[in-house]
Design a protein around this nucleic acid. Sequence first.
DNA 1: CACAGTAGGTGTACGCCGTACACCCGTCAA
DNA 2: TTGACGGGTGTACGGCGTACACCTACTGTG
Lengths: 236, 236
Amino acid sequence: MAQQAKAVRRTPLTRDRVLRAAVALADGTGIEALSMRKLAQELDVVPMALYKHVANKEQLLDGMVDVVMSEIDPPAPGADWQDAVRGRVLSARRAFLGHPWAAQVLQSRTSPTPVVLAYMDSVIGMFRTGGFSVDLTHHVMHALGSRMMGITQELFDASPNPDPRPRSTAPQEGAGQFPYVTELAGAVAHDAGSVVGQGCDDQFEFEFALDLLLDGFERLRRQGWSSADRSRDNGR
Amino acid sequence: MAQQAKAVRRTPLTRDRVLRAAVALADGTGIEALSMRKLAQELDVVPMALYKHVANKEQLLDGMVDVVMSEIDPPAPGADWQDAVRGRVLSARRAFLGHPWAAQVLQSRTSPTPVVLAYMDSVIGMFRTGGFSVDLTHHVMHALGSRMMGITQELFDASPNPDPRPRSTAPQEGAGQFPYVTELAGAVAHDAGSVVGQGCDDQFEFEFALDLLLDGFERLRRQGWSSADRSRDNGR
DNA sequence: CACAGTAGGTGTACGCCGTACACCCGTCAA
DNA sequence: TTGACGGGTGTACGGCGTACACCTACTGTG
């Protein structure tokens, strides 16, 4: 009964509870607004209490990434390597899209957590069992890069200036200043069709690039590519 | 003479001087150690003096990226589109490699500066004059993503644990835990040949991926690819 | 030459951050 | 009964970005 009263008064902190609260907070208010103090407040606890469950903020971020990664579907058995990799990557993408801050945080980590390593291991395994040499697998993993996690490294939005306030240093904002950007932006806005808002179908762009790479990989695999023949052209 | 005495006492601050000092400081001590206070100290000036030349820290970072971008070589005239893009991208890569913080900073910007836009415009122009439709150019630019700036979005180092201290949450660090990662890391360490240190030739990995993409682009261009035929396979 | 305007450097202060360190209290094993 | 210990608390420190009021030395104008 004494226990019950206490349990009612406050569910005890856990590393897991801390991480989930952090994810929820970042989802809701953005990663830049996530501070140890705000997180503590959310959990109705004093800031220093968190440090009994995570060593520091870095480790908190590590843990948050792990939470997101746990949402990635397990590998589909029985698919050929291309579909297997494709499916896993797109599942990772779904997970990361659900937490817009996660890509940025992942990329700020300096070394992978075991959870991330396990994911990479499974992807590497798909290439290996799909008939890729260790050598080719190695380079192919590099070529995938962050796309392996479903993260497109887009530079900015496609539109030249999504931010309404003009850049200060632009001397003359004339339309002809960046003709090719203007042309491209115009076309994108045009063929967006019925939807008025965002011009780019991010999912299409991602799959376009992903498949371009995967098809390239398959071509190299078929012709027994090896880094020993280091010529400029990757096969023809 | 009065001017001279003053000039000796202190060269006046400029936006340019501020930016250069910031770049030098970031080069020397890392981007995370760059603060308005430290930068001011470096310039022998009070922190708030900087705000007469840059609006805030965000704009300082924008300006720093512009400084790096100014080191990119101008486009080589007369080359075919593939060599032109390749050369420009590799030059950008050289610039960014000289300032390890720059890639991360660029990717943290929310909207491009005119300098960045100008660079993108020139790359887009290379595709357009190389015979790419606006449509294909659009998707191809997405597929290049940050690689357009010479930035590989590697996730981590290839070695499974470059950081000497072991991750805390690893229950059993046994060799068999991530067999594929282990296999790959072993092979990489092996074929590094004479060099004992870093196992991966980053430049090779970058060009491998870049050429894989550029060759893919060329294939699509030749067959007159259009996003109208949205099928999974990008040509064969 | 006098003077007002202004560009640019200064000083102080505020509210935020991460976290070190000492503390304290309830639980449970011996 | 006691003593160790897991876990929440309170205080404090040094650092951050930057708002705001101020001062000062130079400028162009009459």
